[in-house]
Amino acid sequence: MFVITLSYLVGVEEIDEAMPAHREWLDAQYSDGVFLASGAQVPRKGGVILAAGLPRLELEARLSLDPFKQKNLASYEVVEFVPRAVKPGLEALQA
């Protein structure tokens, strides 16, 4: 499992202009079953994505296709971890 944090490198105005393309990219990752959750940080200085089910190199290749990355609008930090405990009902996250 991975926690990906995005940090904006530009103003929110430029982020908002690229947001439709970014959301389209996100939707493709959800359709593939890779992304589990995503959203904006509070305060709005970047975002967070939870991902699972693929090797790190493949995840990094997918991240490189994000319009935010391609337009140099955000930087990314990827943290990999193994869930040892989960809330009842989320046992699939331990697979």
Rank of each mutant, 00 (worst) to 15 (best):
L50K: 01
A85P: 00
P55Q: 13
E77I: 12
S38P: 05
R44F: 08
S31N: 14
L93C: 03
A18N: 10
V42S: 14
I49M: 04
E91Q: 10
H22R: 02
A28C: 07
V42L: 09
G53E: 07
G53R: 13
A28E: 14
G33Y: 12
V12I: 15
V10W: 02
V86D: 03
V10A: 12
Y76T: 09
G11M: 09
Y8C: 14
P67Y: 03
V34K: 09
A95V: 14
V34R: 13
G47L: 01
G53H: 14
Q94Y: 01
Y30G: 12
M19W: 15
A74H: 01
D66Y: 03
V82T: 15
V10D: 13
L9S: 10
R84E: 06
K45E: 13
I15D: 10
A18G: 04
I4L: 06
L36P: 02
L9Q: 10
L50T: 03
L65D: 11
P83S: 10
L63T: 05
F2Y: 15
A18P: 04
S75I: 04
A18Y: 08
A95S: 13
L50H: 04
A95W: 00
K87A: 09
K71T: 06
G53W: 12
R84Q: 09
P88Y: 00
G53Q: 11
L63V: 00
W25M: 03
W25C: 01
E17G: 00
E91S: 08
A18H: 07
R84F: 07
R84S: 07
L36T: 07
G89K: 04
F35A: 02
F35Q: 00
Q94G: 06
E13N: 13
P83T: 03
L9Y: 02
E80P: 07
S38C: 13
V3I: 15
A28V: 06
P67H: 09
S64W: 01
I15P: 06
S31W: 02
L36I: 13
Q29P: 02
R44Y: 05
R23P: 03
L90K: 04
L6E: 00
D16M: 10
V34C: 05
R23G: 02
G33S: 09
L59R: 00
P20D: 11
A21N: 06
G33M: 14
A37C: 09
Q94E: 04
V42A: 11
V12G: 06
V12M: 15
I4V: 15
L73E: 04
A85W: 10
K69Q: 12
G46V: 09
L65C: 04
I15V: 15
G46H: 05
G89W: 04
E60Y: 06
Y8I: 13
F2G: 00
P43F: 00
L57W: 07
L57S: 15
F68A: 01
E58P: 00
P43K: 02
V86G: 08
P20Y: 07
Y8M: 08
P55A: 14
S75P: 02
V42Y: 08
L57R: 11
S75F: 05
R62F: 06
L57K: 15
K87M: 11
E58A: 10
G39S: 08
